[in-house]
Amino acid sequence: MEKVDFIKLCQDSAKANNHELSAKLLPSARQYLLEHGLGKLPVIWLETNDSGDNNIAFMNTTYPYLNQVFRDMIDLLYSNTFMAAQGTDALQLLEDTMNHYQGKFTLVVEGAVPAKDGGLYNVIARTKKGPLTALDAVVRLGEAAQYVVAIGTCASFGGASSAAPNVTGSVGISQVLKRQVINVSGCPVNPDWFVGTLAHLLMYGPPEVDELNRPKLFYGATVHRHCQRRSYFDNKEYAKQLGDIECMFSQGCSGPRTGSDCPYRQWINHVSWPVKVNTPCIGCTNRDFPDGSAPFFSPLPQKTTSHKQQPDMGKERP
C-alpha cells in the first residue's frame, strides 16, 4: 500500500463502521514486513504520572482489535499493565530488551514525568540499588530508542498531571529528552490515533507532524470545523443550557481551539462523542489542557487566560 493510500484509509475509517481498515491494514503490514525482512515493531511501554486511561483506551481499539495489534503489528516487550512477568524478572526483561534492541525499539510513554525533587514523585520500580524513577527511565530509554511516542496529553504536554499548582513539577516527556517526540495527545487518546501512529511508524517511519509534533493526519482540523452543530454556530443559535440541541459555545465548548477529528471519527467503536451526548468539548488534546480549558462551562473568552508557559514545547532542541 502506498503511503498516500494509507493516510486516506486512516482518515476514512471512521465514516464507515466496517472492517475495511483491519482488512487492508493487517495484510499489507504483514506483506510489508515480509518484503523488507522486518519483524514486528519492538515496543517498550512505560507508565509514569497518569491515570492509566490511555492503556484502557488502547484496549478499546477496533479494526484492528487489540489481539491483532499484538499478533501482527507490535512486539510489546515491557509494559507495566500488559506483561506477565513481575518483580525482578520484569526489570531484567527491561534491561535485556534495551540492550538487545538498542536503537531499534520504540519507546511509548504514558504519563507526565515529575522533574521536581529528583523525580521521586514517580518511581517505576524499587530496586536493591534504590528507586528507579520515571525521570531516570525515560531519559535513559529515550536516548536508546529509535522512536519515542508520547501517548496521551500528560506525556505530550504535562496535561492533568501538571495542572496548577503542579506540586510534582510534572512536564511532558519532550521537556526531558533532547530528541524528536511524536505526541499523540488526548485525555484519553483515541485508540485509532495511537494505533494509526504505530502503523505509520512501522511501515513508513515518522508521520508528518504539526507545530506541536502531533501527527497531522489526526489533529489537522479543529473539532469546530466538522462539528454536527456547526450550522447552529454559523446561525448564532446557542444552547441556553446543557441538553439543548443548539451550539454549545455558550456552555464552554473548546471545539474552536482544539485540533482533533472527534466529530467524524467518534469514540468507543466509532459510536459517539461528547457533543453528541450534550456535553461540550473540553479541549483535551490541547497543550494547555486542563488549565487552559477551565472553567469548563464558561464560554471561551471567559476562560482562564494564564496559560502555562512552555516556550520551547514542541520544538526539536539541538
Binding site: E47, G52, N80, T81, A84, A90, N122
Partner: peptide, 9 residues
C-alpha cells in the same frame, strides 16, 4: 517491585 498487570505503580 514492580507489581505488574495493574494500572498505576
Amino acid at each position: 517491585s514492580p507489581v505488574t498487570r495493574l494500572s498505576g505503580l
